[in-house]
Design a protein around this nucleic acid. Sequence first.
DNA 1: ATTATACAACTTGTATACTAGAATTCAATT
DNA 2: AATTGAATTCTAGTATACAAGTTGTATAAT
Lengths: 224, 224
Amino acid sequence: MRLLERLPRESGGEYALRTIKENIINLELPPGSQISENELAAEMGLSRTPVREALIELSKVKIVDVQPQKKSSIPLIDYDMVEESRFMRDLLECAVVELDCEMAGPADLERLDENVRLQSLYMDDFYSGRLMTLDDQFHELLFDIAKKSQIFALIRNISIHFDRVRTLALSSVKNTKIVQDHADIVDAIRRKDPKAARALMETHLDRYDIDAAALRTAYPQYFR
Amino acid sequence: MRLLERLPRESGGEYALRTIKENIINLELPPGSQISENELAAEMGLSRTPVREALIELSKVKIVDVQPQKKSSIPLIDYDMVEESRFMRDLLECAVVELDCEMAGPADLERLDENVRLQSLYMDDFYSGRLMTLDDQFHELLFDIAKKSQIFALIRNISIHFDRVRTLALSSVKNTKIVQDHADIVDAIRRKDPKAARALMETHLDRYDIDAAALRTAYPQYFR
DNA sequence: ATTATACAACTTGTATACTAGAATTCAATT
DNA sequence: AATTGAATTCTAGTATACAAGTTGTATAAT
């Protein structure tokens, strides 16, 4: 497992959650692999308690499978689950971007502009993951502006199902398209055009459409 | 705090979560009240560990406020939070009820009918909370039929914000209307009429926010 | 050889002891 | 009397010991 750096003032439980989540998404903890509270704890230099808290949270969205008194494991990819998470995300993102057209003030638009500017800067920085962080922050901003940040937190967890499929697919979406999408969305919000904003968001999210069948034949051992 | 009966094969953690959740919704743990892991544990005949697990989960949706090394409490009703949970629930419920029109088979319709029949029976059973349980189960059924049960689980947690407001409102929202709404929704699903189903669901869900201002003046000590 | 049983080696669930930090109280000092 | 400060007593965070249950293996009996 790939260890992350422990942030200042971060509790052991938070660190464990962040680390485990990251390793599930990047497939270091591969689908179907067995995990053990003891091993994870030892690897992260913690006791079982904070690790256990992290595993419980992840098991709530079925990204970790805890079988009491037996074992715990990382579930194989369940495409129904992937679809369910996508359904939820699409519905809420589109509704939120419509709300943003009413609710975004000048300061909010400035924050969005700043984010998109940075995205342009890091557009070619393929491996750094910096663009991915900015992408995530962009969507978080949209939820914040619409006063829906709590919902974003829930989406973030269930989206792990989708995120690890995206990792598997090595998501071939062109960075230029993503950044342009974001810029267009900000424009629509500035023009207070909810219909356009929703349409652009739909197009944007559709880019991540993944060929499930192809993945399933390429990595059959990861699927249920 | 009102203690529930421990179910067979229910772990201590599950029991603690179920009990605390129930007591927040029925306001036995009133908004603004301070809570303590030790007290709750003693009251339920458990140790801190399973109680702590329950509190952590509830704090993830901000229905419990944990201040590290200081104290924990039940937050006052934050109407922005109530609105956020309502927003999420409305959006998903309406989308799901449309899906149900395509996906519900005869057996599903029978299950819905049975639930509504029971609701009619318990319509005047004001204090038992039985009607509220049936109401919850009705909506769970709609998500199950649309193969979106994981999403329902997430909604259920964030909806606690909304549910405790509903507890306050039960005195003013007519049970007869609620049950009639449900019956109408089942009818629309049977007719495979997604537009009608969505419209009916919107009407149904709208009934609960009419009394927001009245509740705030009736129980000002519970609001932030 | 096969089946059954006992035991050993895991697992997660729970209880408890300990650590660290914040708030409060009460006494000492100014 | 007001203020400072140390001690007490809360809190939550963590580590660890133990309980309960499952699985697999080895051994013994048939």
